[in-house]
Design a protein around this nucleic acid. Structure first.
Lengths: 194, 194
DNA sequence: CCGGCGAGGTAGACACTGTCTACGCGGCAT
DNA sequence: ATGCCGCGTAGACAGTGTCTACCTCGCCGG
């Protein structure tokens, strides 16, 4: 009745999450997961017919984690929408930086079965939170709320991506990405209230 | 004395470029390239000690191609900086959409040897063009030019990325990404002139 | 002229991967 | 007790990147 006495399926996913967090996306092979879970290399096949299915399940865990963190942030921060948006953005970037391997996996559409596992739907609640906040701070002359939110999300995502790539600080000369984050928020939402 | 009578090194890169364009990033294996180049699987090793070196050379070709396209666009479009920026952005997104496999490869930092092959430096001229134009349209209250350019680039990159991922249209309800592109440009550069 | 020598390509081995298949074991129901 | 079936094992296969030994030219010094 130990904690690891759970089903093999859940254990495989858990091991995979640990692996992608510690060793990066390329280390998450079927056989390595099976090895660390203490089963033979063919065992995962019962629950995940193909490698993609297992990776997708791991990525789902990543989205769930990110969503939980964002919700926690939303609980901790005050009511001002602009402040909440800033906190959300920072949480997003922090997650990308702290769990780089997982973040990579989550958006590797070539590795994921985004269709059958409804992976995109898993990320929708997250977008809904963003869209809701954006709608609250939107100015009349701005683009429609959905578009504005999409553009802002793309900006956050691009910052995370390029920052991970290592080229942004080199190009902008900035040592941190906080300036970029503030610039992006100011651009899409207007100047901060101070 | 045919055109393919060039050195093997260049031929391998050319074959690799064709392969990544037609079959996607995951199809670009050392052995497949060697096969299509008509040499044994060990031959590439003379010129590219490891797979990463070959992939990096292919990605460099991609950056060169993108740079050439942007420069061509800059030659074709009028002198107004805002117009030029819009054209640049569209060229960037068009490239990402039309050469998805190559675009993916170009920013897969885990597959590339960005250090030794000076891959990042290859992309710097591109950023310089962007930064130069941004500096021309920057308003006094905006972030420093380098930061503003970085934020805009990140936004373009994020749009390309998320659009390729397939989640953006689903979230925003937009069938094309042109609305996102316009929103991003307006956000960072202010409302369009007219 | 000729012998070596080195650049450049071949071919086989190795460890590793994902997938497929046949097999076995153990508990449960009939 | 017996058959069955869920669940895991184990071996095979093709494919991969890397390493290493070899081979085959053309060229160059003596």
């Amino acid at each position: 009745m130990d904690a690891d006495e759970t089903g093999l399926r859940a254990r495989l996913v858990a091991v995979g999450v640990d692996l992608v967090l510690s060793e990066g996306q390329s280390a998450v092979s079927l056989r390595e997961i099976a090895r660390r879970a203490g089963v033979s290399h063919g065992a995962p096949r019962r629950y995940f017919p193909t490698h993609v299915d297992l990776l997708s399940a791991i990525a789902r865990e990543g989205f769930a984690d990110l969503t939980a963190r964002v919700e926690q942030t939303m609980r901790d921060v005050g009511p001002d929408p602009r402040t909440r948006l800033t906190a959300l953005a920072r949480t997003y970037l922090d997650f990308a930086a702290a769990h780089r391997g997982m973040f990579e996996l989550m958006f590797r559409h070539d590795l994921l079965d985004s269709g059958r596992l409804r992976l995109r739907e898993t990320s929708l609640p997250l977008f809904a939170v963003l869209a809701d906040l954006v709608a609250q701070v939107r100015r009349p002359t701005d683009a429609p709320a959905a578009v504005l939110a999409g553009a802002l999300w793309a900006n956050l995502h691009g910052i995370a991506q390029l920052w991970a790539w290592g080229s942004l600080p080199l190009a902008t000369g900035a040592t941190d990405d906080d300036a970029l984050l503030r610039a992006a928020l100011d651009a899409h939402l207007g100047p901060p209230p101070t």
